[in-house]
Write a protein that binds this DNA or RNA. Structure first.
Lengths: 155, 155
DNA sequence: GGTTTCCCTACGGTTTCCGCAGTAGGATCG
DNA sequence: CGATCCTACTGCGGAAACCGTAGGGAAACC
């Protein structure tokens, strides 16, 4: 189930392929091949591997608020014990879109996407704060998404 | 420059199309059409419109750390004055991947992606804290990305 | 009624995708 | 050194998807 975390470094060609797909996830393999100097089939095989290995995913991204998910927030979480254990449990929750271990005044940052206030409150109290090891949480409710880009690597 | 912010509500069919593409950004129009009850061409035209309007983008997403961007952080920013003005200025910076207006103990949350420590320090001191109206910032350095999903809407 | 707009379907020509066979370049090992 | 893997690439033909466009029908507006 969980994608295998192969930590092999990517070579320049794979990075170039990813750059192309960060610009446009539907660009054709042939076109990418032309840009990076590979045949269409080679690009296709590399893309397949990269996605299989979990290095990259090609997806549609939107502003959730336009899709009826009207309550989003970033949770700053302080933890006693192993942060990774808590992070994994958070990651299992469908409402949680994003989990990152952090070095700052929070141990974990988690972005959550809910349909309404009620769902958010429920999530916070019943699921997040109920986790063993979670000591405090702070909620940063989103008001408006202002930028969302994935084209680093092409700077 | 900035994509037009048409705030028309999406109908159920468009939402269904987006759901399909959140699962797999390369799914064929024909297959999507079968799933949502539309012809291939209709799906294609809708996808075109959705992307043109900035409602949705189809892109490759990765863990930036695997691409050589070794320092990422979330910045919590407190502002005096209009938060939107500052947010727009942050959004112009290429190192800034994500900007959101927030209601909590920070006014703005911004995710930044840098190649190394030096670039991060430079960004913080020379660009972010130099902005007029930024009163304080707090940096949450990322240690490890744990989850990154875009398939809400399919729950 | 007439016109405009919007969204859809239908359809053919072109492009892309896909699976597979074949090949070249490294490693490893006796 | 030769034999054997292994991995990554190219080339190719059939199948599928994409693209532009023409045309139809419904709703809105005058």
């Amino acid at each position: 189930m969980s994608t295998k975390r192969t930590n092999a470094a990517l070579d320049a060609t794979s990075k170039a392929i990813i750059e192309q797909l960060q610009l446009d996830g539907r660009r054709s393999y042939a076109e990418i091949g032309k840009a990076v100097g590979l045949s269409e089939a080679a690009v296709r095989q590399r893309v397949q591997k990269l996605t299989d290995a979990g290095v990259m995913q090609i997806v549609a991204v939107t502003d959730p608020m336009r899709l009826g998910f009207n309550r989003q927030a970033m949770l700053g979480i302080r933890v006693s014990g192993d942060t990774r254990v808590i992070a994994d449990k958070l990651a299992e929750m469908p409402e949680v879109a994003y989990v990152v271990l952090s070095a700052g005044s929070f141990d974990i940052l988690a972005e959550v996407v809910c349909e309404d206030d009620e769902a958010l409150i429920e999530l916070l109290n019943q699921k997040v704060r109920a986790l063993d090891g979670v000591s405090t949480t702070e909620t940063f409710l989103y008001l408006q998404l202002n930028k969302q880009k994935y084209d680093w690597g092409t700077r």
